[in-house]
Design a protein around this nucleic acid. Structure first.
Lengths: 197, 197
DNA sequence: GTCTATATCCAGATAGAC
DNA sequence: GTCTATCTGGATATAGAC
């Protein structure tokens, strides 16, 4: 699990004061309720520098968006290179996402509980981004390997990822009291039990 | 199905020019990218009247939020009064939501593909609202009636509702080509197959 | 390359006529 | 009760000093 190892010793999940401040503010208040002056204040970098580096608020959001998608992509690659069975790969990905929900809540919240099109209308849809397509591909592999019932790929991936994302959102909302990792086995058993037929 | 019957003959899903215009604009552009002047233009009601009736943009959003939650609530009540078995109730609710995704896309999008806390931070969380609590209650009933494996309620409801919501979102994104109703049986079979154990 | 002070714009809200 | 014209605040973005 290279992803966790790399991040573990770092106090900040993102190595950039501006992006870190923006992430926190965007998640807490929502993109449009955050002014560039707030980002300036929290990050302790001047307005001028922010504009030099990112060109403005939308530039920050764009970079942040790419950054978190890239982290997710690396997480997936870490899993796919260390495990063979696509079913186990999916389970491991969800496991790590559940863990990150506790340890990197803001990144997870920005990834799975943000309507990006509200402020990045020109970016490609998250559900069409590399890491999401990879997850879909893994699901497809699992079906083809006959480890999963030959059901529609959109249905299967919606059951798998949809359940996990919903649990993450309920956890962030505070409607699930304990860490999601406690429910991982139950979740996966029920999912596979249905899909494996 | 009183819900559909009531709405069927109406050209507009909402009987208020201002709310209808706001719904369309909010879904298309996102709440913060919509100005009150745009709502004025589309609804063809003057700014003054809008402020008289709703007190401002947030007032419109608040009313709209309550309205769509109320419609969902009525949909659920319609199902629970016409069907006995909680498992069938859940299936029927999802069926109607899938149908509405085709016929009332904007309402469904506002319900299931909008981050309401970004513009209504003081409203109760959607996942804690009456209709969502009712769905959770129905799921709980299903478990108690032994129709569903005695698994954690949060896990079971995440699998059921999470899959459905994700399919709705993928459909709205245009990443699922055909109407969701075509996939209803496959989805429900795979879900129940796993949960019924 | 970093900062502060300033300009510009625009959305939300209001006042007052009809 | 409905409308239009106007005010005001605040955010983005820039200009120019250091």
């Amino acid at each position: 699990m290279p992803y966790l190892k790399r991040l573990a010793p770092e106090p900040e999940p993102i190595d950039c004061k501006i992006l870190t401040a923006a992430l926190n503010l965007f998640v807490e208040k929502g993109y449009h309720s955050v002014s560039i002056h707030e980002v300036q204040k929290i990050s302790d970098v001047s307005i001028g520098s922010i504009y030099k580096h990112f060109g403005g608020k939308e530039g920050i959001a764009k970079q942040l968006y790419k950054h978190v998608l890239n982290e997710l992509d690396e997480l997936i690659d870490g899993v796919t290179t260390s495990v063979e069975d696509p079913v186990v790969q999916l389970e491991e990905i969800i496991k790590q996402l559940f863990e990150h929900t506790e340890t990197h809540e803001y990144i997870i919240s920005f990834l799975f509980y943000t309507k990006h099109t509200d402020f990045l209308p020109d970016e490609p849809l998250m559900n069409n981004s590399r890491p999401f397509l990879k997850i879909k591909e893994i699901t497809s592999n699992a079906i083809e390997a006959k480890n999963i019932n030959n059901t529609n790929i959109n249905v299967a991936s919606s059951i798998i990822l949809g359940s996990a994302i919903r649990m993450i959102q309920l956890r962030i909302d505070g409607l699930i009291d304990d860490p999601l990792i406690n429910h991982l086995d139950t979740l996966m058993n029920n999912i596979w039990n249905g899909l494996k037929a």
